[in-house]
């Protein structure tokens, strides 16, 4: 455990420049948003938009941090890989530290979302806002972990290929493999069999809204907001499959690095 903690400490130092870049960009966006919004008299609205945009970018931030960390490590791969620790240990230290870095700016952006949302509108009550923020938080975190797991998997394939060919060709083949895999997975998730397998454990979106009623008029075809919200679900089955996907990709990455990546 001490070995892993010492490694984690090193990872914090290694990824610090990437964190500083992200933090400066985040602050820069907010300050820029404030001045632009103030000029037009919509400071809160613009800042809400900017903080929402910043929150959504966090789905990619963990993958960016990992890219920075692994790319730095690539220049001295023997230092990283000449270690008795398993690849899962080495990678988990990277994921943990970069996840912590991501959480810092993510927490700030979510807090700003809530503050500016409340200043812009009183559409939702506290309970509804709390429910929506919680759901978005979990969805963003899962998405960022999933994107990071996908990135790590394809990075390990890129590293394997780059031993046999130049970086450009390795990148092109890895990218094509990514596009093909995404397309194939899209086909699989469209199958009714897959949907039967995953669409269970419904959570009604409607249940998140407390004391709120929405009426929508689509080109004179009236629809009740209740009907719209009643028919929208989050499935626990989907979440479980996503967790399994993240774990499977992580261990596949470990397997590839352990057996295929060379110094």
């Amino acid at each position: 455990m001490n070995t892993w903690l010492a490694l984690t400490k090193k990872e914090f130092k290694l990824s610090l420049p990437a964190f500083i870049i992200a933090a400066v960009l985040f602050v820069g966006f907010m300050v820029g948003g404030y001045f632009i919004g103030r000029n037009f008299g919509y400071a809160d609205e613009v800042l809400l938009g900017v903080s929402l945009f910043a929150s959504s970018l966090h789905t990619l931030l963990l993958a960016f941090y990992l890219f920075y960390s692994l790319n730095t490590e690539r220049k001295r791969l023997h230092l990283w890989l000449h270690n008795p620790m398993s690849i899962s240990g080495l990678l988990s230290a990277k994921i943990f530290t970069n996840f912590v870095y991501m959480i810092i700016t993510f927490a700030a952006s979510i807090t700003l979302n809530v503050i500016f949302f409340q200043r812009v509108t009183d559409l939702f009550n506290q309970q509804t806002l709390f429910n929506l923020t919680g759901t978005l938080l979990i969805m963003f975190l899962f998405s960022s972990l999933f994107v990071a797991a996908v990135f790590l998997f394809f990075w390990s394939i890129f590293m394997t290929l780059s031993q046999k060919m130049n970086d450009f060709l390795s990148f092109v083949i890895t990218f094509l493999l990514f596009v093909f895999t995404s397309w194939a997975l899209g086909k699989v998730t469209d199958l009714s069999f897959y949907q039967t397998l995953t669409q269970w454990g419904e959570i009604k979106i409607q249940d998140m809204f407390v004391g709120f009623e929405l009426n929508v008029d689509f080109d004179s075809q009236s629809a009740s907001g209740d009907t719209f919200l009643e028919s929208t679900f989050i499935y626990i089955g989907d979440i479980i499959v996503e967790i399994i996907g993240i774990i499977a990709l992580f261990f596949a990455t470990c397997w590839i690095i352990e057996r295929k990546v060379e110094v």
Binding site: R76, H82, V263
Partner: peptide
């Protein structure tokens, strides 16, 4: 031998690369 032989093998690379922050 696998990578984890690092437990009983000390390897010095021909490259003199270190972590710059240490």
């Amino acid at each position: 031998v696998t990578r984890r032989i690092a437990d009983s093998v000390s390897y010095l690379s021909e490259l003199d690369e270190y972590y710059s922050f240490f």
